[in-house]
Every structure is written in structure tokens, then in C-alpha cells.
Amino acid sequence: MTIESRLQQLIDALNVSVLEFARQLGERRGEKVYHILHGRLKPRYDTIEKILVAYPQVNADWLLRGEGLMFKQLDSPSAAITTEERLRNMEFLLFQLTERITLLQQTNDQLLAEITALKSR
């Protein structure tokens, strides 16, 4: 999953518009965020930093690398995670697992087809 798609998921999970999200980062208009979301720009370090400052509940590892949960855990002092955010985290993890299962099934099907083709030779 790309950082652009994670950013879109974050905006959706926060239930804010792209314009509101951009304004929280100190942008007057949402053009820069729109360009990032559509792959025309890559987010720079300062943009990532602004996101993490504006939304301290966001897990930096998830945003940067797609690792872990979207939002920080409760035991983190700077994270006040709500039940709704926890549910979103669980939905996201289920989505990731479903994607992985689908990919594994496709790989399995391809391998079975190759084995069958080799046996018939």
C-alpha cells in the first residue's frame, strides 16, 4: 500500500475533508494534499511532520511504512484513542488481512496451475 493510499485512509478515518485536513497542516488551500493523494507529488518530510503534529494520535510507523495500526495504542502517553478509532484500526487490520489472503490465494492458484502443467508434460 502506498503512502498516498494510507493518507487517503487517514483522511477518511478522521472524517475530515481534504481541505480541512490541509488547513490543519497550515495550508490555505488543499492543492498540495490533492496532488499527494493523486500521486503527482510525494509528501516531503515537513508535510509528514505537520501531519504527526496536527494529529498526534496517528502512528508514524503506519503512515510512513504501513506497519502497525493507524492510530497509537492507549499506553502511549500522547495518544487518546477512542473506541471509534479502535474499531477503525480493527477494520483496517481486517482489510489488510483480506488483501494478504487474496494475494496468497492467487499465488497458490498460479503455483497449482504450474504444477499441473509440469505434470502433464
Rank of each mutant, 00 (worst) to 15 (best):
M70V: 05
S17E: 00
Q9H: 06
E85N: 04
R88M: 08
F71C: 08
F71N: 07
E20S: 11
L52P: 03
P77E: 06
A79Q: 08
R65C: 13
R86N: 12
A60L: 06
Y34T: 11
I3S: 07
E27P: 00
V53S: 10
I115L: 13
R40W: 03
I3T: 08
F92Y: 12
Q24F: 06
L103M: 07
L103P: 00
N59T: 07
T83R: 09
V18K: 08
T82H: 07
T116G: 10
E20I: 03
S5M: 03
E114T: 12
T116R: 13
G66N: 10
Y45T: 09
G68L: 01
G39K: 08
E27R: 11
M70T: 03
V58C: 08
L63T: 06
T2S: 15
F71I: 09
F21E: 01
K42A: 14
V58D: 02
A54E: 04
D109F: 10
M90T: 05
F95K: 12
L97P: 00
F71D: 12
F95Y: 11
L64Y: 09
K72H: 07
T107Y: 10
A113I: 08
R65F: 15
Q110L: 06
Q96M: 12
G68S: 01
E84M: 01
Q73N: 10
Q9E: 11
M70A: 05
E67M: 11
M70R: 02
R88E: 03
R65H: 14
E4A: 13
